[in-house]
Amino acid sequence: MNKDEIIIKFENVSKTYHSSLRSFNIREIFARVLQPKDSKPKEIKSLDNVSFEIYKGETVAIIGQNGSGKSTALKLIAGISGPSEGKVTIKGEITSMLALGAGLHPDFTGRENIFLNGSLFGMSNNYLSSRTADIIEFSELGEKIDQPVRTYSSGMMARLSFSIAIQVQAEILLIDEVLAVGDIAFQEKCLQKFEEIKKRKETTIVMVTHSLKQAEEHCSKVIWIQNSKLMKVGSPKEIVKEYTEIMMHH
């Protein structure tokens, strides 16, 4: 396989949210029809004409301030949302770990949740049964695995979620701030698992992070998004340096 193969491509992508659509009800429809034209619905541009390419096997960090549009970019890659303008091209299967614990059912036991949550990521029940022992071991839940998830602490939930999600053998792995969960020891373990996946060079990893240290240490490329616009794409060292300088001035 070609090493320089493009896996993710954004071409002039914009994403607009219509804030007035949020609480759409009959009354508002009538109001919209009856009102004169100049009362246009409010629009929030979350991404503005963004283009970039991500190659096979790269580990990419998307950085930027809160509300800059990084999570929107991740949602577009994941296929949860679609662009308002432009074109997003994705080559390969995706796993998104956008929020750990999203698919956990509180009344089900940890073991039952392995199947419910794992299949939510597109894994088959057969595959999950063969991985159950690994998942339990990695999550360090031990006996607790057979108790309902509502008795878990948030750290335990995150550990279970991460252990399940990491089993997916996808070509693209999307991660949103998940490495900030759990205690330091578990975070270290996650990062190690991460390095293992990276070494295989088969998986392309895209993560949103606030930790510049993580971006510098673990990534091969950084995409910097500021106020919905693409600021720069480049090597972690260079971008993190520039980013820090600009943030200092603010």
Binding site: L76, G79, G82, P83, S84, E85, G86, K87, V88, T89, I90, K91, G92, E93, E171
Partner: peptide, 8 residues
């Protein structure tokens, strides 16, 4: 590999 293209 599966190729997905999304536009508006």
């Amino acid at each position: 590999p599966k190729i997905i293209i999304t536009t508006n």
